[in-house]
């Protein structure tokens, strides 16, 4: 650094000379803490959810992954090519998204019976950072709470405005839509555009399923 070439002076050193450096270091560690807390929480939560999920798939009732959690896992998303596994929580509010990708309330429910558009949203810098590695033709696997798995194949990816809600709208086929903020390298906690991955179900088991017997549930 340029400062190293500066000739020394015999000036008296003030007693607070370390203060600016200390203050900077303090602020730096605070910012570091805040910065690390978000991905740490995102990772730790997924591990806890993994336990809750395996219990749920093995027949236990849906339970929150930790006692004070206000959400429950609804699906597991797997991408074999990328070795990615994510546990999807109910709802896309800020608190749910801090712990895992969320299932958009009102969109089709994941599972064999899903006939519409299943929509998941996740943070671009934690759980859904892998979306930019997805390619058309990639296979995605969704396991629902009863342990059934449906496979999807990516048909398109695109960037849309945040107001482009048609991507979560009705589809004429069984679809899976993954949404995250764009651009992936963005720094701020907000973005005006979204990266969207649309996949179509591969098998047709549920589409040809028998109509349900008509009894109120």
């Amino acid at each position: 650094m340029k400062a190293a070439t500066r000739p020394g002076t015999a000036r008296q050193r003030p007693p607070w000379r370390h203060l600016p450096a200390l203050a900077c270091a303090l602020l730096a560690s605070a910012a570091l803490g805040r910065g690390l807390w978000i991905p740490a929480k995102a990772r730790a939560a997924q591990v806890l959810i993994a336990h809750a999920w395996s219990a749920q798939v093995h027949g236990a009732a849906a339970r929150p992954p930790w006692p004070w959690a206000d959400t429950v896992p609804v699906a597991r998303l797997r991408v074999a090519r990328l070795g990615v596994e994510r546990f999807v929580l109910a709802g896309t509010g800020g608190t749910a998204l801090a712990f895992g990708p969320g299932h958009l309330t009102g969109s089709a429910k994941p599972g064999l019976a899903a006939s519409g558009n299943v929509v998941f949203a996740g943070h671009r810098d934690t759980h859904f950072a892998f979306l930019h590695q997805l390619r058309i033709g990639d296979q995605l696997e969704i396991q629902d709470a009863s342990g059934d798995t449906v496979s999807y194949r990516v048909v398109w990816t695109r960037v849309v405005a945040a107001e482009d809600t048609w991507v979560v709208g009705v589809t004429g086929h069984r679809a899976l839509t993954l949404i995250t903020c764009y651009p992936f390298g963005g720094l701020a906690g907000q973005a005006r555009v979204r990266f969207v991955v649309r996949a179509r179900a591969i098998d047709n088991r549920a589409a040809s399923a028998e109509p349900r017997a008509g009894h109120p549930r």
Binding site: L104, A121, T126, V160, V168, I179, G186, L187, A188, Q190
Partner: peptide
């Protein structure tokens, strides 16, 4: 669409 960005890289 849901907001899906965190400021952690900024921090």
């Amino acid at each position: 669409l849901p907001a899906t960005a965190t400021p952690y890289r900024l921090w």
